[in-house]
Design a protein around this nucleic acid. Structure first.
Length: 279
DNA sequence: CAAGAATCCTGTCAGC
DNA sequence: TGCTGACAGGATTCTT
C-alpha cells in the first residue's frame, strides 16, 4: 500500500489536475469500502469547487467549496486514476469517481476495499476521529530525536512495531520502517525503549531521508500502484533490504560473518534486515 | 493500559 | 493448465 511518500505523490498529482476545477459529476458505485460511504456524498461533491488538497499521515484531504473536506485513505490496494474519456464500466473495482469541468475524471480504485472515504468540516479536519490521535508528521521539525526518545520511553515492544504505531509517528509503513532501520543500522528486534542516544540520533534523520528520497523519486510502488498523472508505467523503487531475503546488503560483501538479509515475522508482518549491520 | 492476534477483502504468485 | 495455499503496502477491533 501507499505509505507516506506514495500518498504525498498521489495528493500532488490530484492537486495539479483538479485544484480550482468544479465537479460536474460524481458517482458512488457501492455502499461501502472499509466503512459505509458518508450519507449524501455524491450530492455534496456535485457542483462543488475543488479548493485544495493536503496530506496528513496517509490520508488525503480534498477541500471543497461549501465548507466540507473529503477524507480519503487508500488502504492496501487503493489508487487514484486520472483520465479523460474512459467510461466507468471499463474499470473494475472503481468504487467512486468524480468528473470536473474540463473533462478530467478521478477514479478511486481499490480491489481489497481496505480504503475509506469520509466527509469532515474543513475547519475540523484534524479533529476527525481518524486523525485526532495521529502522531507527528515525520518530516516536520517537531519530529526530533528528543521527541522520539520521549515517545519510545518505556515501550516494551520491538522498535519495528513501535515505528508502525501511527500514534507515535505517522506515515511510516512496513517498507519504509524496514528501510529506515537499515539506514540507521538499528536492529528491528531491539526493544524500543533502548533506542536512545546515538541510535535515536541516527534514526530520526534516517527516517526523514528515506521518506524525502522516496517522495523525490515520485513515490514508489509495488505491483498495482499507478501514478496519479495517469501514466501507465509505474515506478519501482530500489529497496535496500525490503524483499531482498538471502541477498547481501550493500555494506556486507566481503565482510566476515555476514549471513545475508534475513526475513522474519514480527506481529504478523514481514521484516527484512541485516543481522550483521543492524544492532 | 499495553501488546499481540484476528480481521476485513481480492489478487498474485509459487509450487505441485 | 488448474488448483491450493501463502502472502501482500493498513489499521481497527478484539483478546490476553
Amino acid at each position: 500500500m501507499p505509505e507516506l511518500p506514495e500518498v504525498e505523490t498521489v495528493m500532488r498529482g490530484l492537486r495539479a489536475r483538479l485544484e480550482g476545477r468544479r465537479i460536474v459529476r460524481a458517482a458512488i458505485n457501492r455502499p461501502d469500502l472499509r466503512w459505509p460511504f458518508p450519507e449524501g456524498l455524491a450530492a455534496r461533491l456535485t457542483g462543488a469547487e475543488v479548493l485544495g488538497f493536503r496530506r496528513r499521515a496517509k490520508y488525503i484531504l480534498m477541500r471543497l467549496s461549501g465548507g466540507d473536506s473529503v477524507l480519503i485513505h487508500l488502504g492496501m490496494s487503493g489508487r487514484m486514476n486520472l483520465s479523460i474519456g474512459i467510461p466507468n464500466a471499463a474499470i473494475t473495482h472503481e468504487h467512486m469517481s468524480i468528473e470536473v469541468d474540463d473533462g478530467w475524471r478521478m477514479g478511486f480504485v481499490d480491489p481489497r476495499r481496505f480504503g475509506s472515504v469520509d466527509l469532515v468540516k474543513t475547519a475540523e479536519e484534524d479533529q476527525h476521529r481518524l486523525l485526532a490521535g495521529m502522531g507527528p508528521e515525520p518530516l516536520d521539525d517537531a519530529f526530533s530525536a528528543a521527541a522520539l526518545n520521549a515517545a519510545l520511553k518505556g515501550k516494551r515492544t520491538p522498535i519495528k512495531a513501535a515505528l508502525l504505531d501511527q500514534r507515535l509517528v505517522c506515515g511510516l509503513g512496513n517498507i519504509y520502517v524496514c528501510e529506515a532501520l537499515f539506514r540507521s543500522r538499528i536492529s528491528p528486534v531491539r526493544l524500543a525503549s533502548t533506542v536512545v542516544g546515538a541510535r535515536a540520533a541516527r534514526l530520526v534523520p534516517a527516517i526523514k531521508a528515506t521518506l524525502t528520497e522516496a517522495i523525490a523519486a515520485g513515490g514508489s510502488s509495488l505491483r498495482d500502484y499507478v501514478q496519479p498523472d495517469g501514466e501507465l508505467g509505474y515506478f519501482q523503487h530500489a529497496w535496500k533490504v525490503y524483499g531482498r531475503e538471502g541477498e547481501k546488503c550493500e555494506v556486507c560483501p566481503g565482510e566476515p560473518g555476514c549471513t545475508g538479509i534475513r526475513r522474519i515475522v514480527q506481529s504478523g508482518r514481514s521484516t527484512f534486515y541485516c543481522g550483521r549491520v543492524q544492532r
